[in-house]
Amino acid sequence: MPMTTSGEPAAAATAAATAGATATPTLGPPHIERNRHAPIVRVTHWVAVVAILVMAASGLRIFNAYPAFHRKGETFCCYPFEGRAIPNWLTFGGWLGGARHWHFAMMWVLVVNGLVYVGYVYLHGAWRDLVPRRGDIRDVTQMIRFYLFIRRDHPLQGKYNALQKGAYFAMPWIGALIVLSGIAIWKPVELAPLTALFGGYVWARYWHFMGMVALLGLAAGHVFMVFAVDPYVLPSMITGRYNERFAPERRNGRPFYHLLPRWAQPTEPTAVDAPPAVPGGPQ
């Protein structure tokens, strides 16, 4: 497959036409973005990384004290690993009491940080890049087709592609589920109506756990895509600076492929490199 060495993707016009009904993103001239992510977003992102890791690992240590969901004397339908402890190296806090102290201290960091992020994104209008829109389903299929090599050129879908939008939009909601179910199992008597909303203490514990699984699943996918598709965004979440030249759209970035800018990507073997076709030779 011949690669263009510079300039627009061959199918840019087509891609832009399929990208969205309302906005039609196009690739502008390559430039260096100074503030791809606002300082508040950058700070809350990394605080969330630490808080989520500590909350998940200390939560798993707490879970290990009773790695099951059934009420005593009953059975539980919906967890296949009932009674099987989480490996200790995945946990944090050392012992049940220690893990509880970390969990109940870090929960404030997680909640305040989350509220600052959501508040900023709401007031500043950055949510417009994240909120689902009509056409996102089609955009998701376009992205998947691109990653599966069915579609040739990276779709142009704005700051975040539809897969990213889905993940980043879901995260605060899953976070809210985790926080509310967490409060429900922290105070099942004082806040009994909240616990009842989750189906009682046993189920609130289950949703708290499953929310964690979902959030870590999305986070793992996010980290994988950062390293496998667009490691150039890593500095942008620290300094805010992003070299547009390395945008996946310009590199045709797929997981593990095309990590280099297009102009630096190795080209297919040319006719000179290929063994000369000798008539009658071995085929």
């Binding site: 806090g93 201290a105 004082e190």
Partner: peptide
């Protein structure tokens, strides 16, 4: 960090958080 009880120096912060949590719990108590 895995499996560890966390840094020793964090203990004072954790104790502080526990005291604050207790006052929150007492406010919620009915």
């Amino acid at each position: 960090a895995c499996g560890s009880p966390g840094p020793k120096r964090a203990q004072r912060l954790l104790d502080y958080a526990e005291r604050k949590n207790e006052s929150v719990e007492r406010v919620l108590f009915r």
